[in-house]
């Protein structure tokens, strides 16, 4: 699942705002496909956002989070050029991570 994460992190000098979009089906397990068979639940369980190695947000998601999940939050500190990492793991054990820099 390489390349599943899009993230924008921008610092205004005192705080950093992070927006991310993760490419993931987030199948709830309650939807049927065209042939009438249930599509098994497949969703991200844990997402971790870290700034320079320190966790700034941990998200726990159930299957009720929308497909291609969006997250927005902000934290004190962080400056342009700092590293920001996003990582996720889903209920089937798939995972992905991305390291980017704050703009």
């Amino acid at each position: 699942m390489a390349g599943s994460i899009l993230v924008r992190a921008s610092s205004d000098g005192t705080a950093t705002t992070v927006q991310s979009l993760i490419h993931h089906p987030m199948d709830s397990g309650f939807i049927k496909d065209a042939s009438g068979a249930l599509i098994p639940a497949h969703y991200i369980e844990v997402v971790q956002f870290a700034h320079a190695g320190t966790v700034v947000l941990t998200a726990f998601w159930g299957p009720a989070v929308s497909k291609d999940p969006f997250t927005k939050f902000s934290f004190q500190g962080g400056k342009s050029g700092d590293a920001l990492t996003v990582s996720w793991v889903d209920n089937l054990g798939n995972k992905d991570s991305l390291s980017t820099t704050i703009s």
């Binding site: 899009l6 927006q19 490419h23």
Partner: peptide, 9 residues
Amino acid sequence: IMQFPPFQF
């Protein structure tokens, strides 16, 4: 939704 539109992928 357009803050980070889902068609970006």
